[in-house]
Computed example of a mutant assay.
Amino acid sequence: MPGKRRGSINRPPTPDAENNNQDREPTLQEIINIKLIESGEKERLKELLRERLIECGWRDEMKALCRAFARKKGKSNVTVDDLVQVITPKGRALVPDSVKAELLQRIRTFLASAAI
Rank of each mutant, 00 (worst) to 15 (best):
K100V: 04
R52W: 04
K90G: 06
P15G: 03
L83E: 03
T109S: 10
V86P: 06
R67Y: 07
L94S: 09
K42Y: 07
E38R: 14
V99M: 06
R108C: 10
E51S: 05
I54C: 02
E51C: 07
E38D: 15
K73F: 05
I32C: 11
R6Q: 15
Q85F: 01
G40M: 04
R71P: 02
P89V: 07
W58F: 03
D23V: 00
T27L: 02
F69G: 03
R106A: 03
A101I: 00
D16R: 02
R71Q: 13
Q29C: 06
K63P: 04
V80S: 09
E30N: 00
A112K: 01
I116M: 04
N21R: 14
L48V: 04
E55Q: 10
N77I: 00
G7S: 12
L45T: 06
T27E: 12
K72Q: 13
M62Y: 00
K90M: 14
S76L: 12
K4C: 05
G3W: 00
L111C: 08
D82S: 07
G3I: 01
I116E: 08
E61T: 08
G3R: 00
Q105T: 08
R24W: 00
E61C: 09
I87E: 09
Q105N: 08
R106D: 02
A115E: 07
N10C: 09
R108V: 04
F69M: 15
P2A: 15
E41K: 14
D81T: 14
D60C: 01
I87K: 00
I54N: 07
P89K: 07
L36I: 11
V80D: 11
P12Y: 06
E51G: 01
K42R: 15
V78I: 06
A114M: 02
K4W: 10
E61I: 01
E30D: 08
R44D: 14
V86Q: 10
N33F: 09
V80F: 13
P96W: 11
A112R: 02
R52T: 03
N21F: 11
D16E: 14
K42Q: 12
G74C: 08
Q105G: 06
C56D: 09
L111A: 09
P15R: 07
P96F: 04
I31S: 10
I54E: 15
G74E: 03
R67V: 05
T14M: 12
A64Q: 15
M62V: 12
R106Y: 02
V80I: 15
T88C: 11
I87Y: 00
K35Y: 01
K46A: 10
E18L: 12
P15L: 08
L65G: 03
N10Y: 12
V99F: 10
S39T: 15
T88Q: 11
L45S: 03
K73Q: 06
F69R: 13
P2G: 13
G40S: 06
N10D: 07
N77Q: 07
I37K: 15
L94H: 03
D23G: 00
P26G: 05
L103G: 08
